[in-house]
Computed example of a mutant assay.
Amino acid sequence: MQAVIDILSWIFIIGGSFFAIVGAVGLVRFPDFWSRLHAVSVTDSAGVILLIVGMALQAGLTLVTVKLLLILAFLFITGPTSTHAVANAALVSGLKPRSSVDRDDADAATQDDKAGPT
């Protein structure tokens, strides 16, 4: 039974690490603030949940598990709330999300740049 719990906990820990790494790559690779914010917020929530569940399985039924679950509840509530607050502050300060028209214009400019001088 302990082997099954160890395997499950490592699956959760590796899955959480994967989401954390994907979020970090998304932070570096995405082009604008809004897509970066989305990538980090979603992967951060998923990564933290999986990591804490994996650690709770490793700890067993102890006081450490209770503390981990309290941390999980706190992060589950504050993560999306803080992301919303940052997005709202950016929107109020004048940073507008790109519309599909803006993306089409940027794509057309990129295609013109790749075509070279005519």
Rank of each mutant, 00 (worst) to 15 (best):
M1L: 11
Q2C: 04
A3W: 07
A3F: 07
I5F: 06
D6Y: 08
I7G: 04
S9K: 05
S9Q: 13
W10K: 07
W10Y: 15
I11Q: 03
F12I: 03
F12Y: 12
F12T: 00
I13F: 05
I14M: 09
S17Y: 03
S17W: 03
F18P: 00
F18R: 02
A20Y: 07
V22N: 00
G23R: 02
V25M: 12
V25T: 04
V25W: 09
V28Y: 12
P31F: 01
P31Q: 05
P31V: 10
D32R: 04
D32S: 09
F33S: 03
W34C: 08
W34N: 08
H38F: 08
H38M: 06
A39P: 01
V40K: 03
V40F: 01
S41G: 15
V42P: 03
V42L: 15
T43H: 02
T43E: 00
D44W: 00
D44P: 02
D44A: 11
S45A: 14
S45W: 04
A46D: 01
A46I: 15
V48M: 15
V48F: 12
I49S: 05
I49R: 00
I49T: 13
L50I: 05
V53A: 09
A56H: 00
A56R: 04
G60I: 06
G60S: 08
G60V: 06
L63V: 13
V66D: 10
K67Q: 11
L68S: 00
L69A: 11
L69G: 04
L70C: 14
I71T: 09
L72F: 10
L72M: 14
L72V: 09
A73P: 02
L75E: 06
L75N: 04
L75W: 03
I77H: 02
T78W: 06
T81S: 15
S82D: 10
S82V: 12
H84N: 11
A85S: 08
V86A: 08
N88K: 15
A89E: 07
A90W: 03
A90H: 04
A90C: 03
L91G: 13
L91R: 13
V92R: 13
G94T: 03
G94I: 05
G94N: 08
G94Y: 06
G94C: 05
L95G: 05
L95W: 10
K96F: 10
P97G: 07
S100Y: 11
R103F: 14
D104H: 09
A106I: 09
A106Y: 12
A106V: 10
T110F: 15
T110I: 09
D112K: 13
D112N: 12
D112E: 13
D113H: 07
D113L: 13
A115Y: 03
A115C: 01
G116I: 09
T118L: 12
T118S: 11
